[in-house]
Design a protein around this nucleic acid. Structure first.
Length: 863
RNA sequence: GCGAGAGUGGCGGAAUUGGUAGACGCACUGGACUUAGGAUCCAGCUCUGGCGACAGAGUGGGAGUUCAAGUCUCCCCUCUCGCACCA
């Protein structure tokens, strides 16, 4: 073996070896237990970043570990290749999204291979290829047939910059999730998936995902947003029209003094028609359509509204309630109509104060007398009903039930539940996506593309129009088509494409049979591999991607293609990678090289001002705190890069990047390398010691035990707990104790135990630093392929301690400790403790009240 | 406001079931080897007092349960993340 550890050379060598031997190729094998390990596939943005490195390294450790444990491990990789960044890049560089995407796939594929990840590259997929999205189009047709996909005209979130519709999930705080521009409302015909049909099922099963972080399931539950209440019908005065409201507080209905409708509510213009309010209402509606009415900006908007000119009647007390349209009423929740109870709802209270509307108290708290004239805020807690006719005196919790029942018998309303979840709008007025396979015929209307005509291929030679608009609607050879039903030749092909979240909602099933050309996947392959045993990715996908994937699995089940309900058995959400940022008061974020440490702190090299160092922030180009994995791998190699990502923090926590920490990892590998070199002469030809520890003595006996204990510890840390940081530190400890051993000394078993220790270190390190382990494994004279070696097994009898270390406490305080033979009984231990010379001064002259002996561990003397 | 998580040395983090707080690593300090060391090896490293053996304090703060609490219970503080005019 080489004297010096040269990662560049050995990493290239073993990557070539794995590649040439298709080392990680797998097939279905009913005789072996399968394990499907999946990391969230990347968007081919151009370069891998450190977050990818962390994500894929965590997955690779588990994949390699499971392989060594004897599982048939499916570990695939592919590309989430459709989407807007490709279009943006195409505009910026005057190229084509396809060209840009395929070039990036090529580059990033090489970078991932440079990390030594154990993927079955023969299963690589890219969602922008017709072979892939053709089956998505096929599924769309199935969903259309089953009524799971439908078209409706509706208000949608529209981004002026991106010239496209955004799903609710893609609106963050009222802004476009990609460009940050304020979202406006626009009415368009859109395709939807009926995800709300599964709202209850998706919610219920959140509690049956024990392998998921609670954080994620609770976010999903929150997103689905189930609330219990009642739907109540209010009659419009002098009309047959009915306005239905959804409320969770039907107990306060006698206190409802007015009503608020969302500006988009269809009743608003009807009520205003012919009244003095007509133009004021029209102005308000117009104003609201330009205003951001969700998210953060909301705090800044005062509650405002306009009287519509109409009234409705409170069905329980006949009160004449003015109907307003108000900015805080949302068309997207409940029925878009709110029965306003100012005394018991803060929003309604504010609104009533502003517009001088009446406040009627209907719930009195115990021992207090609320007076509408002096109230400064709504009273939202429990109490007893007043001013509520027959319900006076009822506790409000009880009244919730009673009033709901009363409404139901009177045919005025019913108990109901409302979900926050909306149907999934999937239409995108974008080019770089999977075309929606339908045809618009002037005679036949919406016509599904016949299955035999799939795929509808996205023309890859069309260039984007100015502003990034989709060329599809202006490309006659795509748009113009013949109606498959009536044969009219002026039918129009749908030019919207699908949301990219559609592709990522089933890719994990495609991996099971990625080249299947008879369906979305081969059912036998899917039934062997699915569900995914372990899924790993960023928490940023906690709602969107994971909820859609769960939904799609239900769709596939409904259609009869799969028999399971949940796609991902266990989920690990890894933390992000952070690094300290440097900020200058005038120049903003600085690269590390743009500031200098000097007396009195760090200074900006541009202006000399004192800079702020040390805030840990997510790595990003704009914060100038990124670490380039390519540079790291060039400097230290893939193994060190992997090692640090695993060692610095447990997977689910944020990882603080530290340059000196990386060097520490590199130092450790060098330390093992040197030790192997030192020992090689002695252990190179020795047989590993496999016997019982009983025939060993002294240091070498201790070492042998330490090796077994380390196997035990590392196996538990990787397999049960996913604590790679402590697994690595256990191996470091073992290596440290190996440094204290002279393999050339003493007993005849020394060489064998040392050989065993070294082999074990390499096997335990194999999932973490695979190239390094392969190289030294080979240097030990072993055949290449440590990745397929069985995982080491510990001997139970070697885990037992030779001596017990007993801790002695007096009144719970540590006072002494002593070693004693393992056969010592509690009485002996107690006696030894009581006569311990360091214990005596603390118990002398005091009566011993009680002595607690914890088996083989501790004595506590209470005086 | 609602939901989730976190708070331990100078730093990242250990402590798996209530039982030795600070494993492992980084930084720092000292020593060895060396022409030299930013290489390597050995040692030290929570705080306070003491030359020292030792003693006292100590896991965000406060109470409690217990022979024993970083760990369990209650209250409070701080931070991070998610959702939020949700009727």
């Amino acid at each position: 073996m080489e004297e010096r550890y040269n990662p560049e050379q050995i990493e290239a060598k073993w990557q070539r070896y794995w590649d040439e031997n298709s080392a990680f190729r797998v097939d279905e094998d009913p005789g072996r237990k399968k394990y499907y390990l999946l990391e969230m596939f990347p968007y081919p943005s151009g370069n891998i970043h450190i977050g990818h490195v962390r994500n894929y390294t965590i997955g690779d450790v588990l994949a390699r570990y499971k392989t060594m444990q004897g599982f048939n491990v499916l570990h695939p990789m592919g590309w989430d290749a459709f989407g807007m960044p490709a279009e943006n890049a195409a505009i910026a560089n005057n190229t084509h999204p396809a060209k840009w995407t395929y070039a990036n796939i090529d580059t990033m594929g090489r970078q991932l291979k440079r990390l030594g990840l154990s993927y079955d590259w023969e299963r690589e997929i890219a969602t922008c290829r017709p072979e892939y999205y053709r089956w998505e189009q096929w599924l769309f047709l199935k969903m259309l047939e089953k009524g799971m996909a439908y078209r409706k005209e509706s208000y949608v979130n529209w981004c002026e910059d991106c010239q496209t519709v955004l799903a609710n999930e893609q609106v963050e705080a009222g802004m476009c999730w990609r460009c940050g521009r304020q979202v406006v409302q626009k009415k368009l015909w859109q395709w939807f998936f009926r995800i709300t049909d599964f709202a209850e099922d998706l919610l219920v099963y959140c509690d049956q995902l024990p392998g998921w972080p609670e954080k994620v399931t609770s976010m999903q539950k929150n997103w689905i947003g189930k609330s219990f209440g009642a739907e109540i019908r209010f009659r419009v005065e002098n009309s047959d029209e009915i306005i239905a409201v959804f409320t969770t507080r039907q107990d306060t209905i006698f206190g409802a003094t007015f009503m608020c409708l969302a500006p988009e509510h269809p009743m608003v213009p009807k009520l205003a028609e012919g009244t003095a309010q007509e133009s004021a209402v029209a102005d308000f509606i117009d104003k609201m359509s330009h205003q951001d009415r969700s998210g953060k900006a909301v705090d800044q908007y005062e509650k405002e509204g306009v009287f519509t000119g109409g009234y409705c009647i409170n069905p329980l007390n006949g009160r004449r309630m003015p109907v307003y349209t108000a900015n805080f009423a949302l068309m997207g929740y409940g029925t878009g109509a709110v029965m306003s109870v100012p005394a018991h709802d803060q929003r309604d209270f504010d609104f009533a104060k502003k517009y001088g509307l009446e406040i009627v108290v209907v719930i009195q708290p115990e021992g207090e007398q609320l007076d509408p004239k002096t109230m400064e805020a709504a009273y939202t807690d429990d109490g007893v009903l007043v001013n509520s006719g027959p319900f006076d005196g009822t506790p409000n919790r009880q009244a919730l039930e009673d009033i709901a029942a009363h409404l139901e018998t009177g045919g005025i309303g019913k108990k109901t539940v409302s979900y926050r979840l909306r149907d999934w709008g999937i239409s995108r007025q974008r080019y770089w996506g999977a075309p929606i396979p339908v045809i618009h015929c002037p005679d036949c209307g919406i016509v599904p593309v016949p299955e035999k005509d799939l795929p509808i291929v996205l023309p890859e030679d069309a260039m984007l129009l100015e502003g990034g608009r989709s060329p599809l609607s202006e490309l006659p050879r795509f748009k113009k088509t013949v109606c498959p039903i009536c044969g009219r030749n002026d039918a129009r092909r749908e030019t919207d494409t699908m949301d990219t979240f559609v592709e990522s909602s089933w890719y994990f099933e495609r991996y099971c049979s990625p080249r299947c050309d008879t369906g979305m996947f081969d059912p036998a392959a899917v039934s062997y591999w699915m569900p995914v045993d372990q899924y790993i990715g960023g928490v940023e996908h906690a709602i969107l991607h994971l909820l859609y994937s769960r939904y799609f699995t239900r769709v596939l089940r409904e259609i009869g293609l799969v028999s399971f309900k949940e796609p991902f058995d266990r989920l690990l959400t890894q933390g992000m990678v952070t690094k300290e940022s440097v900020t200058c008061p005038t120049h903003g974020y600085l690269f590390p090289t743009e500031s200098e440490k000097s007396e009195g702190g760090h200074r900006c090299l541009k202006c000399g001002a004192e800079v702020t160092v040390g805030r840990m922030e997510k790595m990003s180009k704009s914060k100038k705190n990124v670490v380039d994995p390519n540079e790291l791998m060039a400097q230290y190699g893939a193994d060190t890069t992997r090692l640090f990502c695993l060692f610095a923090a447990p997977p689910e926590r944020d990882l603080e990047w530290s340059e000196t920490g990386v060097e520490g990892g590199f130092r450790f590998l060098n330390r093992v390398w040197r030790l192997a070199g030192d020992w090689m002469e002695v252990i190179g030809s020795a047989a590993p010691y496999e016997g019982s520890p009983d025939s060993l003595t002294g240091d070498i006996r201790d070492l042998n035990k330490k090796v077994h204990q380390t196997i035990h510890k590392v196996t538990g840390d990787i397999g049960d707990r996913y604590r790679f940081n402590t697994a690595i530190s256990a191996v470091m400890e073992l290596v440290n104790s190996m440094y204290g051993i002279d393999p050339r000394s003493g007993a005849s078993e020394v060489a064998g135990v040392c050989r065993f220790a070294m082999e074990t270190v390499l096997l335990l390190l194999a999932p973490f630093v695979p190239h390094f382990s392969e190289e030294l494994w080979e240097a030990l004279g072993k055949p290449a392929g440590i990745y397929r070696q069985p995982w080491p097994v510990y001997r139970e009898d070697a885990l037992e301690k030779d001596e017990l270390l007993i801790v002695v406490q007096v009144n719970g305080k540590l006072r002494s400790r002593f070693s004693i033979g393992t056969d010592a009984d509690d009485a002996t231990i107690k006696k030894t403790a009581l006569s311990d010379e360091r214990v005596i001064p603390f118990i002398e002259g005091k009566p011993v009240k009680k002595v607690i002996v914890v088996k083989k561990k501790l004595v506590n003397i209470v005086v």
